[in-house]
Design a protein around this nucleic acid. Structure first.
Lengths: 332, 332
DNA sequence: TTGAAAGCGGTACCAT
DNA sequence: ATGGTACCGCTTTCAA
């Protein structure tokens, strides 16, 4: 059943059917009714491939995501997909992992599928590194980066000032008497680098020294994290608080502390469900995904509609206090 | 840059270019080389819309998922997407929520986008209820259900015998002296119903009575779960073990028990990261997503290639023992 | 308000 | 092995 069949049965031309299909202006009410009736009766839906070919768009947005199985990214994808759908766009998901080569490859896959735009979730690139793939992709379609930044034409960013958030946390801890703050991270993506920079900045502002043995890179797997922090404790490395670049790392540290019978402030990042599941419940930083994602999609829709939109939007993070740290606590 | 340009520059016809493009058999090596060179030089990629129109397929699979922000479904989507990609398929993601009306609507969206097949994640339907949308969708494209079942033509299922798993857990607990087992669940999807049936079956096999106050439906939100279980404890409802239909519910129960100073066996379901994050670490049931998903994609590829494939594959679940329960424990 | 016809960019059949 | 061409189903311009 195609547009020709509908036209024939309605006794009009395909041009008229097309007009009806697209909420066309210049169709008499009588004709419209008749055509719509036939469409309904025949359960007709226009062929999106043909339409795509003609318009050079299928209203599909590519989502390039480091890893949807990660709780945090999953939430981002969920929010983005919902909003895209509500705006009439499909969401073509493509997960890249952390290898630059793969990221390039999968970016190409999306472009070859002729998506209308690409949303990057989980910085598909690192700062000061090879962003040429983003740059050349942006020559074909607009690129929206969620919680990352790249100063390139046709590239738009919505991000959270994570550097400031971590810096603030260091200062909060310091005010409560913590001078030796362990910092845990896994990868130095854009976001990862910003947080680490925030840690260093916080130390500087407090007049605290940066001690390398307190900056620990760990793999993103719970048992290993716990093990590495335990090893640190066994080496009698002294620290009196823990900051982590992600909730999972904080949870791992928490477990190490627990089995050593220790208790100290621990602050995670992302405010994911993991923070709630931990016992004691983990204080964490909300980096505003619930605002980031709608903002990103709104920008995208504006861009595709030819409206003006800012190229970069920066939000502030918010500390969510739970059992493992209270900013107002008199005792830590 | 289209196939005509390439043909012109290569001094051949578009038919030949098309053959080169599709790994065509009947092209002289010389011609192929020349055409490939021009393609490379011009950075040509065929227009997928045109190809889609001609072939009536864009090699895109629709993924209808209840909720990707859920850790468990996120992992499923992640696995499925990766495997689809490796087989040359795109993954069009569409999240439905739990409303039947929405599920129908979004199923239609996917169909209208002319996907080659649809994979259902997080039973998009309930047993013995209205499955007409699945049935009619299956008339257009094959439907693959991950961890759900529907006996319909052109519908294929890969699932885990969760009923048996829960039943077994009840019996394990009973053998260790637990006669009052609290069962927590949230929604009665296909999977949810199977687990509840398993609980009842387990009780029957142990000769234990089914007590309604020990079957608790809770919302899928941590604070509320903890609160409801706490309320139960305050009402002096006696139970000596907890089974949950999902890790999150088990974690909520764990927290309620902890704040009441109680300790008893708790077993979650899905073996998600949440089970690892909990303290004490949660024993959970692995329902074999890592096998389910590859199996599902393999089936799908076979179906689309016209190969024979079974309509239903059932796997056994596996108990992953952690702190909150050990089957071999002498004391519980 | 309506229709005819020219694209859009491929695939594949049929000749040669 | 290669080329000519019909066809896929829609949008849109131009005429009427």
């Amino acid at each position: 059943m195609n547009i020709y069949d509908i036209a024939k049965q309605s006794g009009v031309s395909i041009a008229t059917v097309s007009r009806v299909l697209n909420g066309g202006q210049k169709v008499s009410e009588k004709t419209r009714k008749k055509v719509l009736a036939v469409m309904q009766q025949e359960d007709y839906t226009p062929n999106v491939f043909a339409r795509g070919l003609g318009l050079n768009s299928m209203k599909v947005i590519g989502i390039l995501c480091t890893d949807v199985s990660d709780t945090y990214y999953a939430k981002a994808v969920s929010l983005v997909e919902e909003l895209l759908r509500k705006n009439g766009f499909g969401a073509l998901l493509c997960c890249t992992g952390n290898e630059l080569a793969d990221k390039k490859k999968y970016l190409d896959i999306l472009l070859n599928r002729r998506v209308d735009a690409i949303i990057l979730i989980g910085s598909a690139f690192k700062e000061n590194s090879d962003n040429s793939h983003i740059e050349s992709a942006a020559k074909q379609v607009p690129i929206i980066i969620i919680n990352g930044a790249a100063d390139l034409p046709n590239t738009y960013c919505v991000l959270c000032d994570e550097r400031a958030a971590v810096s603030r946390n260091v200062q909060l801890l310091h005010r409560q008497g913590c001078n030796d703050i362990l910092y845990l991270y896994d990868v130095l993506t854009f976001s990862g680098s910003a947080k680490l920079a925030g840690y260093k900045e916080g130390l500087r502002r407090c007049g605290l020294p940066l001690r390398n043995q307190l900056v620990l890179k760990v793999p993103k797997a719970l048992p290993q994290i716990t093990q590495e922090v335990s090893a640190l404790l066994q080496k009698h490395t002294v620290f009196s608080a823990v900051l982590a670049s992600e909730d999972l790392l904080a949870v791992g540290a928490l477990k190490a502390l627990q089995s050593a019978g220790l208790s100290m402030p621990v602050i995670g990042f992302n405010n994911s469900i993991l923070a709630q599941c931990a016992s004691p419940a983990l204080t964490s930083v909300d980096n505003m995904l619930d605002t980031l994602c709608p903002t990103a999609v709104k920008m995208l829709v504006d861009i595709l509609n030819g409206k003006e939109t800012p190229q970069k939007i920066i939000l502030s993070a918010k500390l969510i206090e739970r059992d493992t740290f209270h900013a107002a606590a008199s005792n830590v």
